[in-house]
């Protein structure tokens, strides 16, 4: 049998529901398997831990080939909100929580959450703009230090 994975550090770099969920599911799943997990939020992925944005993350209906519809339809007012609400209902049924609850769940599961310093500076954010589950704002060097000895997954 192959050696068990002991530690993963997952980078969430994309915004939108489809950008944020894979990393959340994978980090939570790691903790469920007893694997040490870190989450590093960068660029638009940072929305998932910014207090005033985390509850409003939507699915992009324009320029998203995964939506299986013509982009022009995605331009219609309310389309993104409707797609988001449909998706949220389906996810709730299979027990995938909304983003703020998910962040709380992975943090309670022992996953450590970090915000990327470069992005924080670029968007002019402060520590108090983030949800309390965020451990700290760190630079890339510190991320590698934290990730040392484990696997790194970029999403």
């Amino acid at each position: 049998m192959n050696e068990k994975i002991k530690k993963v550090s997952i980078i969430i770099s994309k915004g939108g529901l489809d950008g944020v969920y894979p990393g959340l599911i994978m980090s939570n799943g790691a903790r469920m398997e007893g694997i040490e997990a870190n989450l590093f939020f960068t660029f638009f992925g940072l929305d998932a831990i910014v207090k005033k944005r985390m509850g409003k993350i939507k699915i992009a209906t324009v320029g998203n080939p995964g939506m299986h519809m013509a982009s022009i339809l995605g331009l219609l007012p309310g389309m993104s909100a409707m797609a988001t609400s449909m998706m949220k209902k389906t996810m709730d049924k299979i027990d995938i929580p909304p983003v703020p609850e998910f962040i709380e769940m992975v943090a309670d599961a022992g996953c450590k959450l970090y915000a990327c310093k470069a992005t924080v500076d670029m968007f002019k954010l402060k520590k108090e703009d983030f949800c309390p589950q965020v451990d700290s704002i760190i630079n890339v060097g510190k991320f590698y230090e934290i990730a040392a000895g484990g696997h790194i997954i970029f999403t």
Binding site: R31, M32, E33, G34, M105, D108, A109, G110
Partner: peptide
């Protein structure tokens, strides 16, 4: 709570 669950069953609570 999720925290307590991980404390009670360390290293893979649901399994």
């Amino acid at each position: 709570t999720t925290k307590e669950l991980y404390e009670l069953f360390p290293g893979g609570p649901v399994k």
